[in-house]
Design a protein around this nucleic acid. Structure first.
Lengths: 211, 211
DNA sequence: GGGCGTCTCCACCTTTTGATCGATGCCCGG
DNA sequence: CCGGGCATCGATCAAAAGGTGGAGACGCCC
């Protein structure tokens, strides 16, 4: 292992969480918190400026850019720091985009301090740490036949989840009801359900759509 | 103001959040963190033991008792400490039970440290602090005509939200479909909608049911 | 005792939704 | 250039859900 401390950037919109991460990591040797960011945009700026080894990134920010977008922006540059996602709740809708965006690891905030420190060291070495709950769902995802909806299907289902009838959905998307029904039939087949409400419940459970 | 420090108990299942609250409050004068609890049950025990002025209480714990139940148990005793709710997300389904349970205040975790410290002092004095977002919704709630469902209606809607058909709901609750339809008709009227999916969306939005 | 709310159930009818066949045009990659 | 996924639409038909207008039973409270 290296003698130099691991230089850490904390990106989270909650002051309490930033203070908590700082407090937890500062009690461990070998870590140096070099900056904090309260917005995703600020995190991208600070990461681009260099001098950081690992970014602890929240996914939900109050407004503007989210954590996945910030992760993508950070990891797109050469010599970018590693990004370790540290978030509260995990759903597929969050996890997959973050991993696709180049996150090195994914932890939940209820992790004990030792796990957090270990994950930071692992991330600094360029290897991956996943929270058990996240790892489980990823495995299921790879095992199960693709339950991914197309862009259009997701649009339709999102409107259905807001309580719109086929008629209203067709108006919103400038389609005929026949097309909406066609999309819904495909959605039901993919999700293994047979009604709109069941589809919404399943999609919420899988994190395909957001409440 | 008193010379004695305000004695604080922190109840949250996330080590990071506990460390964060501790770090934030210890930088302010006049506070003394006397204990931490990682479960709601433990918080009730520690609060009952005395020596605490204010309890900072999370609402969601990993399992077992939740924050509202713990708040009710704590405030039920004579000479109980004040309970200040400090949580991440706010929905009516969380807020109202907590306030009914006797919470003195309700803050979101994205509050700046100064607000947090001020709220603790206010709570110690027995007065209430509400986060603006929470206060807004409470006002709307009092202003709006009661959108409260009966116990049975909530049961029906919860099953509907899981995607069950009227037939399945009637089987689960040992009713006829006629009764289920009757309950649903009342639900639609109360929520101002005209379909099961719209009712689920509205109820989720109002926090009447939980996904 | 009478009113009120809740929970239960019935019948009849209309509307919406879902199931099952289709069909066309588009784009993308092998 | 051809196959396949995607998006778009059509027509039926059956099933589910919703709208209307009841009614009886129970408990609670004034």
């Amino acid at each position: 292992m290296n003698d130099l401390p691991i230089r850490i950037l904390i990106a989270d919109d909650h002051p309490v969480v930033r203070a908590g991460l700082r407090a937890v990591l500062e009690t461990e040797p070998g870590f140096s918190i070099v900056a904090e960011a309260a917005t995703a945009e600020r995190a991208v700026e600070l990461a681009a400026a260099g001098g950081t080894d690992v970014v602890l990134m929240d996914l939900q920010f109050g407004g503007g850019m989210n954590g996945s977008q910030a992760t993508a922006a950070i990891t797109a540059r050469p010599g970018a720091p590693r990004v370790l996602i540290v978030t509260t709740y995990d759903t597929d809708a969050d996890t997959l985009p973050a991993i696709e965006a180049g996150a090195t690891g994914y932890l939940l905030k209820d992790a004990p301090p030792e796990d957090l420190a270990a994950a930071v060291r692992t991330a600094a070495a360029g290897r991956t740490t996943l929270a058990p709950a996240v790892a489980d769902r990823l495995m299921n995802r790879l095992r199960a036949p693709h339950t991914s909806l197309t862009r259009r299907e997701t649009e339709v289902l999102t409107l259905v989840a807001e309580g719109l009838s086929n008629q209203r959905v067709s108006e919103r998307l400038h389609l005929t009801q026949a097309t909406v029904k066609s999309h819904l039939a495909h959605i039901y087949a993919k999700l293994g359900v047979d009604s709109r409400t069941a589809a919404v419940a399943a999609a919420l459970g899988l994190g395909i759509i957001r409440r």
